[in-house]
Amino acid sequence: MKINRAMPGTHNRMGMQILLLLLIITFCVFPFYWMVTTSLKTQLLALKSPPVWLFEPTFQNYTEVLTKDGVAKTLINSLIVAVSTTMLAITLGCPAAYALARFEFRGKRDLWFWFITNRMVSPIVLALPFFLIVRKIGLLDTHLVLILIYLTFNLPIVIWICTDQFRSVPFELNEAAMLEGASPFRIFRSICLPLAMPGVAVSAIFSFIFSWNELMYALVLTRNSAKTAPAMAVSFMEGYNLPYGKIMATSTLIVIPVIIFSLIASKQLVRGLTMGAVK
């Protein structure tokens, strides 16, 4: 009897779980579904009221934004900037993170705090002075400017995540290597860095996503030749017409690469999100 009564309860709980999970999935995925379908509609169809769910898809918006409006070039710009700044952030950040994790020195905590604080600074604080300085040295509208300014939020992320990662590498390995007379840099390069790779990968993924998605600096510091994809998407927002299809096609083109990238990397991503749990 007891078992019989418990069984439907478990079933219900299972059913409840399935329902909740499906709800979560729908909640997360539906906007994407809508974005992609809208991008396949003609202008007249996109502005139909009430919205149409079944229709004959057209790729006209994609061909138009890619060939006529130059979205392809901005995607390449975004790629160049995001990859370069990520590599730079890793190259600079890993040794610093290692030092914060392994070396003893005065003011360590304050230094760590200062690094992290850079992540908190609103881009609006730096955008204009940076613009004024950059115009003086003639670097406006170049990839380099974005690569450098994106370090202000990528470097802290790399340092934050990697410091924790280096701390979790067994210290005995360091001691053994030191006894053999290895230099600090060799220990870092050959022993600790390979072991900290998961953390490095996660911070690289984050750097890439943040840089790929950034808008404010891109709006202020680029105009034409270095314009990134998000800045491009925004520039369709002329109050004169609502090219919903084109806007959504551009949006899809921007979002798809980073989505694929993060789905592939989602295992590392979720692991990396322990955020200093390993202390």
């Binding site: 409006d69 115009r135 105009r223 925004v234 520039s235 369709f236 927002m237 002329e238 109050g239």
Partner: peptide, 19 residues
Amino acid sequence: KHPYENALGEQVRDFVAGG
């Protein structure tokens, strides 16, 4: 090409920067 709402800002920054 710029949307109207950005056109002034873009041009002001260009002229200020000697663009």
